[in-house]
Design a protein around this nucleic acid. Sequence first.
DNA 1: CCCCAAATTATAATCACTTCAAATTAAAAC
DNA 2: GTTTTAATTTGAAGTGATTATAATTTGGGG
Lengths: 146, 146
Amino acid sequence: MSLEEKLVREMRKRGKKVTPQRRFIFQALEKESDHHPTAEEILHTVRQTLPDVSLTTVYNTLHNLVEMELLREVDLGEGMTRFDTNTDIHHHLLCKRCGKLVDIHRQFRNVFLPPEDAHGFIITSHQVIFEGICLDCQMKAGMLKQ
Amino acid sequence: MSLEEKLVREMRKRGKKVTPQRRFIFQALEKESDHHPTAEEILHTVRQTLPDVSLTTVYNTLHNLVEMELLREVDLGEGMTRFDTNTDIHHHLLCKRCGKLVDIHRQFRNVFLPPEDAHGFIITSHQVIFEGICLDCQMKAGMLKQ
DNA sequence: CCCCAAATTATAATCACTTCAAATTAAAAC
DNA sequence: GTTTTAATTTGAAGTGATTATAATTTGGGG
């Protein structure tokens, strides 16, 4: 089942309307699932087929999906939110220079807060963010001694 | 040596001017070091004694300190940047409901990316963010079966 | 086909920050 | 102490991402 089909079903299940705009947003999410698109990027893709879609609609739909837990918001302090169709636990590696973002699908077994360090919180999730400099940026900066 | 003294010294060491504005910003950082203040919060504190300081100056000074590696920017996807005078490696625990932020000073030994997972990046830092619901918010939501 | 709550839209607003250019000032040089 | 000057400060205007508003349109049940 494609992502589009899945999301359409979930929308219907919850009595939400399935508009053409939403269908194309679902398709864009599927198409760009590999690189954590921003709302602007989704808008751009959707407008290739539906030129009058508004940014508000994109945000509205993405937020709906997040609420339905079918989409994950990823905020790495870049000044904008990225959206990730992979809602499984995974981590991120971010290039400080160019903003390139890579998924890390490895688990870190130790990352767990024992009750005495949890300050009474109910912990619902955790995320590891690695920061560094990607190959391209090392190249550009002449950091690679070839 | 107080934080103010330390920062004044470091400024002088680098040939930077020590203005009254900067001194009061250093004091505010010291006073609020426990709760990761935002630029706005620093501004508010500084204005209690120096009512005409501008937000631009606060940002300018904070960014200077970050550049000098005497201050750490913490961005947890809340839509604004917090500043942390503790530049040691440590992690964070964030309440999703009220935004309360707690430092975690425990190390996680396993959190390391082996070269085959590093995608060629030079990794310079990592950060673990735990999310959950704090005691106060559990209380408010009646989640505590007392 | 009709209805109407839900969805979409354009426009304007907001929020956190950044840029800019003119006025001020710390501190080095005299 | 006075002068000099480059760094700093300032408020106003600008940005870019996101959100609010209110009028218009529409999916889909009846």
